[in-house]
Design a protein around this nucleic acid. Structure first.
Lengths: 161, 161, 161, 161
DNA sequence: TTTT
DNA sequence: TTTT
């Protein structure tokens, strides 16, 4: 049984096109970088902005939809949970990453929306991924994420807890 | 104006007593480490548990209340927003931290509840902090948190965005 | 595809024991009345309390768990969505009801917790409902709920949208 | 102190232009009717849609912003709490209403967005309400809301709990 | 890196 | 009554 609640709700814009990969078992894993901006007045009365860049991960069916319909600039609602990971970088140094594992998504329009797009968290008929990419195959765009974490070879087991 | 929604909702238990410090201006900053556990069945049908340790930060009035009433083991509801920071460690290496900046809190009872306690996000009359601790004063308990970030000297400006 | 987000998050206490019924198809439908209280200071500086009584409905597996483990006084976290219904009362007058259709639940302890209880939103092994109750069977406790709506005969189709 | 959590999160579209009134003390009270639609497959495999119409109320500053920037068709994020009211209709019959008392709002664009609009939950400089309407003054558009509740004369005290 |  |  679960103990506790771990819930994240985001509405923001993508800083880049989604990055979709597939596990050896064929499960889609799509990553996006999502901006939310807040404002406060500092003590001098000036407007101060601060943008957080959230690393959001979509698995499976949701990963396919996200990869197909979201684009740089898209506005999206995401619901999910926080996952903290620890890994050893190529430089041998321990690093930490924070991801939001999405379990619900809804497109909200906004600039960057692809051509025929539409989509949503519950889309009934959607096309299959255009093609399977083996891990490591294809040009892997640089990740703009705040916290870099490697994500190259997936087991099918690499799913959100 | 804010652009986007950045909201976190947690219900979990404290891994340690809260850690309260005060800015030079007297503002309380309380940190807790909050556990949430989820379960899934792996492909062999075994129950697999995974615990996330969230770093939650309370500022000002909420920081005083959290520091006074929460204890190791306490169960608490927290609402806040995600903040990602980047800093240079003492070893000169760039590091990243993720905090949940709380803006609402509610005690839920459970083990670890202090003596007369009570408290809540809106508690009307509460006592002032017992004493000011200069930064760095006192034994700083080891944090069970996933991601270590230093937090020693605060300006009064060091408040959530 | 869904259009929009309709989400409710509650933490509160049950005003009565749960009321579980079963559809002809054997699906459990459990209703609880959940209290949340807020406080504000009125203009005279007096504390003013106000309690909302939420009608929460659990279907299926969650309905069985809720009926088995929740009790009057139990503290519980509920996540769900709002559903507004319109029906004609026995007096021939049109009436309206508002329900929260739960899709997640988590017990938080507190007074009223049953004997061996435990439970949670994801409990793996739980016993089947002790017995089927035909609609109308058994003493139907008075509901403290704000808005009364009849709920006697269910089709198996009477499930949350 | 508050006991419990009572939180609603909505993303939807307005079915009509907002309805703004002012209390005698000059506080804005804006009401909107917000649609969220969900879909499920019935047992015959057909897509079944269901739309909920939420009555959302904005008070004070937020009421002014909502009244000024939202329009029929606008897409909006709303966060608030549930409030159930009971009143006696003009026919002498007791009735019930459910409102979401908003405490955060964010425009999401979409059709129906007014002219120069913009706005958001935190908008720094915004114009004052065009004019004060005494209660009862002006043609009060019919409310499209699901549950009708009278709302004519406000005391300044008529604010969310 | 987004967006308004 | 909205929207996709």
């Amino acid at each position: 049984m679960a103990r506790g609640i771990n819930k994240v709700i985001l509405v923001g814009n993508l800083g880049n096109d989604p990055d979709t990969k597939y596990t050896q078992g064929g499960m889609a894993i799509t990553r996006i970088s999502l901006a939310t901006t807040s404002v406060r007045k500092d003590k001098d009365g000036n407007q101060q902005e601060r943008t957080e860049w959230h690393r959001v991960v979509f698995f499976g069916k949701l990963g396919e939809i996200a990869g197909e319909y979201l684009r740089k600039g898209s506005s999206v609602y995401v619901e999910g949970s926080l996952r903290y990971d620890k890994y050893t970088g190529q430089d041998g140094v321990e690093k930490y990453s924070t991801d939001i594992i999405a379990d619900e998504m809804q497109m909200l329009g906004g600039k960057g929306e692809g051509g025929g797009g539409g989509g949503g968290g519950d889309r009934p008929q959607r096309s299959a991924p255009a093609q399977r990419q083996g891990s490591g195959s294809g040009p892997s765009r640089p990740q703009p994420a705040t916290q870099q974490a490697p994500m190259d070879d997936f087991a099918d087991d690499d799913i959100p807890f």
